[in-house]
Amino acid sequence: MSEKRRILFTGASGGLARIIADRIKDDFEIYGIDVRPLRVGARFPGEFLQLDYQSRKVSELFRSMKFQAMVHLGRLPMEAQYRKFSRFHTNVLGTRNLLDLCLKHQVKTAIVMSTFHVYGAHQHNHLYITEDDALLASHTFPEITDAVELDNISVAFSLKNREIRTLILRPVNVIGNRIHNQISMFLRTGACPVLMGYDPMQQFIHESDMAEAVLLALNGDKSGIYNVAGEGVIPFTKAVEMAGSKAVPVPEFLKGPSIQFMKWVGFDFPKHLVEYFKYPVIVSDKAFRRDFGYQPKVTTRDALESLITGLPGSLG
């Protein structure tokens, strides 16, 4: 029997990396790195190393392990503990370094997890934004520039280096009971502030569908930029209700103080998300469905209703 293929996950302390790694642990030898430590009590199905993406040790890891594939999930979110500089350092320079290492050590597939946030919540947005549309996020909210830069760097890399199959995935809000991203935590808070008078449509994708999408991308043969969405679209307040929380309408002129208040009670609410509570950013995943045969299995309703408890056995 031939040697198992090796795969590297970044952002390995996150829930999504663990879910994906769990599914492929029989076929791959799995390594995971993250600038963050593993969560207390969490287990990574493979070898986990807490490393800076620009460190010498990461180069050494690439040199010695000869990875077949890299799944780059390690984008630092916009939380207070990660200042602008550390986000720039990890998300932009770190990504650049990782992609360079992939090229240098003949990694065959690189999957970069971007986000639908890069399109930006703009008043003139049309519904069903495609991969060709402009990335407006940093115009409406300059703080998010690192996420847009990460996306841009990866797209430029994929165009320049055709010998590596590079995929840039731009998923919608990923939610699930095993992941701890901002939107999942927000919907779990019990009382969610929303902007009074605005109720934009939102898209959600369940963690298991997201994991499936990454695996489809990993095993497919196409490269490029792909939006990834879930089953349906749903108004934001309806989503909050379905997740079991209560929507608390806040007038727009009070949004600053209420963000401060949330911070004070211990929830670090990213300011840029407020824009996404005002105008819809609905993406079209037609291309991903066509090229990879992707079909979400968990409905939006099930994904939201199982946010705290998890899906019943048959689906999860």
Partner: peptide, 12 residues
Amino acid sequence: LNSAGFDPWGVS
């Protein structure tokens, strides 16, 4: 209509 009871453009 989708699982949440809305059409793809947000009509309820």
